[in-house]
Amino acid sequence: MAPEWAHAGIRVNALAPTFVRRELTPTTLSRPEWAAELLSRIPIGRLGEPEDIAEAVTLLLSDAASLITGNTLTIDGRLHHPIISTIPLPQTTLPPGAQGVLRLVLASLCQATSVIRYV
């Protein structure tokens, strides 16, 4: 999208955050082995906070980023992404095959959220 909109002064960038501490995070991290595995794969050693994402958005929307377009800013403490396929999912009453779908959903959460800025 960035090349198509650059002529109009529109910058297109994306954010790819790690797990961010929010209302649902305690549910996600309720299994100690899951939480330990997740944090062991984040060299900075912590989850993201909403302020981490807000600061990145502020940067991308500012004049300081006037030459940045067509990029994905990864905000993940250098998370090693294979975590999605290696952490065992909780045993549930999901129908057969649903855990594969759940893994796909988890993986899609690691995808970028678009940020478009009109300059």
Rank of each mutant, 00 (worst) to 15 (best):
D63L: 00
L61P: 00
S108F: 04
A6V: 05
I87F: 09
E37F: 04
A112C: 04
L89D: 00
L79K: 01
E49K: 11
I10Q: 09
S66P: 00
A65E: 10
R103H: 00
A98V: 03
A112K: 06
T69R: 04
Q91Y: 04
P43Q: 02
P96Q: 08
A36R: 15
P50I: 08
G48H: 07
A65W: 06
D76A: 05
P26A: 01
G45A: 08
A6P: 02
V105H: 11
D76V: 01
V115N: 07
D76E: 09
G45K: 10
H81C: 01
P3W: 15
P90R: 14
V57R: 05
I42C: 01
H7V: 05
F19H: 08
L67A: 11
T18V: 10
G9S: 07
A54R: 06
V105W: 12
L61D: 09
A65H: 06
Q111T: 09
R22H: 14
F19S: 10
A36L: 04
S62L: 01
L24Y: 15
N13E: 11
L67K: 03
T93P: 00
P3M: 13
I44N: 09
V12G: 06
H80G: 00
A36C: 02
T93A: 13
F19L: 13
T113F: 04
I42A: 01
T18R: 15
A6G: 12
T28V: 15
I87Y: 10
L39G: 03
I10W: 06
H7D: 14
A36S: 12
R31Q: 15
V20E: 10
L94Y: 12
T72A: 06
S114R: 05
G70R: 12
T92G: 08
R31H: 13
R103S: 00
G100H: 09
M1N: 02
V115H: 10
Q91C: 01
S40D: 11
A112V: 00
T25F: 12
E55L: 11
I83Y: 13
T72G: 01
D52V: 02
G70V: 05
P96L: 04
R78W: 10
L47A: 06
P26E: 07
T92W: 13
I87S: 08
E4T: 06
N71V: 08
I87N: 09
P32V: 06
A2E: 02
P96C: 04
N71G: 09
P95A: 14
L15S: 05
L73K: 07
V20G: 07
A64F: 03
T69V: 03
E33Y: 05
I68E: 10
L102H: 07
S66C: 09
L104W: 14
A16T: 05
T58P: 02
H7K: 14
A8E: 15
T58I: 06
P50N: 12
T25L: 11
V105I: 14
I44S: 14
A64E: 14
D76C: 03
T25C: 03
I53D: 02
T74W: 04
H81F: 12
R41T: 02
N13K: 02
D52Q: 07
A56E: 04
H80W: 13
G70T: 06
E23G: 12
V119N: 15
G9N: 07
